[in-house]
Each structure stands twice: as C-alpha cells, then as structure tokens.
Design a protein around this nucleic acid. Structure first.
Lengths: 322, 322
DNA sequence: CCGCGCGATATCTCTGACGTATCGTGCGCC
DNA sequence: GGCGCACGATACGTCAGAGATATCGCGCGG
C-alpha cells in the first residue's frame, strides 16, 4: 500500500465497533480476509500495532485509540466537505455584498432581505447604503455583488453588468400637518411649481433629478432654489418643519411620523425604476439564490428575471431539477 | 467510483494549488488524464461541479472552495491521526494514575515525576497519596496504573501485579534542636529504647511497623506507648515540639525546618524498600515510558527493571530500535 | 484429545487507477 | 482570418491491488 486512504479509516472504525474481524467485515460488505490484510497494511503504514487480537475479541491499543479518534474526525470532515459543497452550490452558505440607495430600504428591500435571511440564514450579508453611481463602480471593482439604485449603469465596463428593474415608484409630496395642503389626497404639478420644495440633490440620483427637471417649465423652475437633502428621512423631516413640500418616491410613505401628510402628485408621475444590477459573469450560487428570492418576492418582475436567470445554465438546471 | 477516498482530496487540493491539470498531475507524480478522470469522478460523487475550467486556468467554484476547505481539514486530521498514534505508542500522550505513600514524595518521586513531566509533557498525571494497602487494592481494581508503597502486594490477584523495589531507605531519628541529643550525628537503638517515640501507626505501613517492632526487645518495647502520626511531616513536627524522638526514613531529612535535628541510627537500620507495583498485563506505553524514566532516574534498580521490561516485547523492541 | 471459532495466509480474479495516444476547442499570433 | 498551440477530455490498454475463496495455525472448551 502506498498511502493511507479513507477506506482504511472506515475499516478500522468498523473493527473497533464490532471488536471482531468477521462481523466488522460483514458490516462493511466485504469478506474477512481482505479486512485482515487492509488492517495489517494500515498498521504497517502507521508504523504501530493498532489492535490487540485477543481470544476474547479485538481491542484497540493505546495507539489505536488515539488513531481512531483522529480517524473519526477525518471522516466527519470528509462527509462535512461534501455537505458543505452542496450547500455552497445551492447558495446556502457564502457571502453577499449588497449596495443600495437609502430609499430602497423603505421598499422593497425589507421584504427581499427578510425573506432571504430566513431562507438563507448561513449567508453572511454585507449590506451598505450607497448612491447609485457609487454602486455601479463598486460592482465593477468587484467590491459588491449586487447594487440597487435608480441609475442604469453607464460607462466603461457597464456592458459587463446585467440590470433589471424590480420596483416601480411614483412621486409623492410630503408636507407638515400644519401646511395648507395637509389633508388633501392629491396635489397637482402646477401647484408644486408655486411651492418651496425639498428634494434630493442632483449629484445623488441623477436620473431622479433629471426627471424632476423635465416636470417643470424651465423658465421658472421651482427646483432652482429648492432645499436639498441627501436622505429620504431628512426630506420628510424638513417638510415636517415647514421648510417646504418634500418630493420623493411613494415608498417614502413608510416613514412613520404623525406630523406629516402625504399627497399623491397628479398627474401620476412615475419615477425612474429601482434597478438591480450584478455582474453578468458572476456565477455565484449565492447571487443566484438572491435573485431567486427577488423573483419570488417581487412578482411583477418575475418574468423578466426568469428570462435572465435562464441565461445562467447551472441555476436554470437546478431550478428545473428542484 | 464507489466512495470518496483520500486520494480525491489530495488531487483536488493539488489542482486548486496549481490551477492547471498538467502541472497538478506532475506534482502528484501521475499523468494528466487520470487526474482529469479522478476529478470528474469526485465531482460526480459530490454531485457538484467543483472546478471551473477556463482558458486562463482552473479555479474552484463556490462549491469547490467550500469542499477544499473541508478536504484540507480532513487530510490534516488523517495526518494528525497517524502522528497521534505514534505519540500514543511511544507513551507521549495518555494518562498515568499514580498512587504513592506520602514519604515517597520526599524521595525519589520528585526526581522521577519531574523528569517524566519534562520528557512527557502531554501525559496527564493523576497523582494521589494513599497508604500501601490501598494502593494495591486500587491497582487491582484498575483505578491506578502505578502504586508506590512499602508493602509487597498480598492476597487475591496479587500475583497479577509486578512489584520492583526502587528505593532504599535507612532509619533516621529526628529531635527538637532543644533536645539533649540535638547535635549528635548518630543515636543508638538502645538509646532510642529509652526515649518517647513518635512513629507511624501500625495500620498505615505494616511492613515498617513490623520492622520497628523487631528492633526492640519485646518485654519493654518503646513503641507501645509511642505517639503516632500518619504523616512524615507530622512526625517531624511533633519531634520539633519536643513530644519525643521521631523515627522515619532518611528521606525525612528533606523536610526543611530549622528547629529539628536529624541523627542516623546505629547500627544502620534498613527500612523496607520503597516498592513500585503495576499490573503485569498492562501494556500501556505510558506505563512503559514511566518505568523507563524510573529506570533512568534510579540507577541502582536499573538492572532489575531492565529484566522486567524485557518481558514487555513491544517495549523491548522499541528500546532496541531507539 | 478432538472439535470449533477466529484471525492469518495463499492464491486467484477482476475492478479500477494509471499510462499512452488522440481528440476537441478556444485562444493567440503572424 | 486561418493556422498553430496549449490544455482538458476521451479512448483504450495495462497492471497493481482490493476483494473472494480456500485453507492454515492456534487457542480454547468440552
């Protein structure tokens, strides 16, 4: 025999368990002589007698007992390695680094992340808030696995990313409960044009800013002197202070405060969709599992994601099999 | 392939290391095609693709990375098991339960145990003081591995024990520095007969008590009204208090006090030897190592132990080889 | 003293691991 | 852009060695 193989460990453990060559061999599904020769070969390889063959049974020597303990651990590790591989392949273990814009934390991230944590408790989630352009850059730099933003990735390398819209927002206005508009269910764009506004700065979410700018007549645009805030909660807070009318996505309604009032904007203004981006070449099972969770959680984008996921052969095969 | 073998783990690790089938195979001393087939068989057995074969190299998939981590641990455990077996066979690990009479702690146990601890730091020593008859009983009950006492084992099962004398003591007397005999280098047995004595009780060390009794004329024996103490230190302490002349083994001189004085007894009285006992059937390498330490530490019993150890075939063979 | 149970040994068989030869393919180079 | 080349996969023959069958050696009990 050249080297110690897993077979020898299995044989030694069976022999220790049955204390009898014949019965141990039977439990292993082999005849007694091969077991004798394999144990002898193992002892020769280890360099120590591992079993005492007595007329009353076969018992491990001190060396044998020490060896058996290690053998048990080794076989456990081997079995564990196979299990770990399967779990990793199914995306049940590993790491997912997610970057997102703050407003996505109102919806739909709570539902998606909550479900993912429940179904994949052993995946380490590294989640950080970042503005859309930074998310694209981090994705390309390999520092993120998934980015959630409102800006379609542009620039060098952007074609290596896959982007899928997965949440739709409409514009809502928020005012202090002391504001004249408080209590109204809707507010018109023309009315907004006469108000002091609180909005997100242009450099933060360019797509949103561009869209808002298109909403108003360029000659006397209320955005020009508007108050800016980088965070949804700040927009709502400033509106509550009476600084002006805050504008943001309808998910802003989830900000729980009793000193503000939300109005739909008429006509209904659709904001740039929340987009989910990832590297097209990324075959990480954790990513596939996350996308699957997104698919199940956001039914309106199911078909679109399904088409994309079909491009992942492994994932597609796994879903077909499951 | 029926089952995952250690070979597959070694191959997978080599492949991960070299990221190249040909070079990995070369490092394993095999040709490239068998490596391909073995890796394929492993992947089939695990049920997951473990390596991505790209034009720029071979890289582990997520499943492969998880598997490789476990494979590394498994092979480490296997190697560790072989090492552990060797160490156990050489008596470098394990447990030694030693019972001894208190006076042995003065000499020669400090030297023997000190040396053994230094040469066998990973052997757990369970050491407890016990009187000679209790040591024999514990040895027979399998609760001790070695017993050190002054009484040759007698009774049922005693023939299954091996006993070897390994330390010789002579009788010394101890008196307070205020005692008339203080300052004398020797004291005669006839003088002792006229003194109040402090001795060990008869039930503790029968062999010593019987020997002392033989020392004096039976008609007016000083032992009859003697003060008894179960511990060497107590004997010395009572002597220091002026209670009487303490009698004990010459190792008693190691009791460090400046208020006592030791005198040799003339004529020189040899006490029953310190005896070391163990089960003849005990093939424990730790015991063998301990006996070897005793042999090296107590040169005067070397030849006697050598003859006994020659009866242990394993041990004898090991010594011949080393 | 013989029979029996058990592990070791002898010998044969056949699986499967490995070697050699060759193929398919994707990339690079002129 | 076609050819060459590097690399992994495949085909197939070979042989080591794992396992099966038969038998031996030995210690124990009746």
């Amino acid at each position: 025999m050249r080297r110690v193989e897993a077979r020898h460990l299995r044989y030694a453990l069976a022999l220790a368990e049955h204390q009898h060559f014949g019965r141990a061999a039977a439990s292993l599904g082999i005849a007694q002589p091969p077991l004798s020769t394999q144990i002898a070969a193992l002892e020769r390889e280890v360099g120590e007698r591992l079993f005492d063959r007595t007329p009353r049974g076969v018992f491990p020597t001190a060396a044998g007992a020490a060896f058996l303990a290690g053998a048990r651990r080794a076989l456990d590790e081997m079995a564990g390695a196979v299990v770990d591989a399967g779990r990793a392949a199914r995306g049940e273990t590993g790491r997912l680094r997610l970057g997102f814009i703050g407003s996505a934390l109102l919806a739909p991230l709570p539902a998606v992340l909550g479900r993912f944590r429940r179904t994949h408790p052993d995946v380490r989630l590294a989640v950080q808030e970042m503005e859309s352009p930074a998310g694209t850059a981090a994705l390309l730099a390999g520092e993120l696995d998934v980015a959630v933003g409102r800006a379609t990735p542009r620039g060098v390398g952007a074609e290596s990313l896959v982007t899928v819209p997965f949440w739709t927002n409409h514009l809502v206005a928020v005012v202090s409960t002391a504001h004249p508009h408080a209590g109204r269910s809707t507010i018109g764009v023309d009315q907004l044009a006469r108000e002091d506004l609180v909005i997100t700065p242009p450099d933060k979410e360019p797509a949103v800013s561009a869209m808002l700018r298109a909403l108003f007549a360029p000659e006397r645009c209320p955005l020009d002197g508007a108050t800016v805030a980088r965070d949804v909660h700040t927009i709502v807070g400033l509106a509550a202070c009476g600084v002006g009318v805050g504008l943001g996505p309808d998910s802003m309604r989830r900000v729980a405060r009793n000193d503000v009032w939300f109005c739909d904007v008429t006509p209904r203004v659709r904001l740039p969709d929340l987009l989910l981006s990832f590297r097209a070449a990324d075959r990480s099972p954790v990513l596939a599992a996350f996308l699957d969770t997104v698919r199940r959680t956001c039914p309106d984008v199911e078909s679109r994601l399904d088409r994309l996921l079909a491009a992942h052969p492994d994932t597609a095969a796994r879903r077909a099999a499951g």
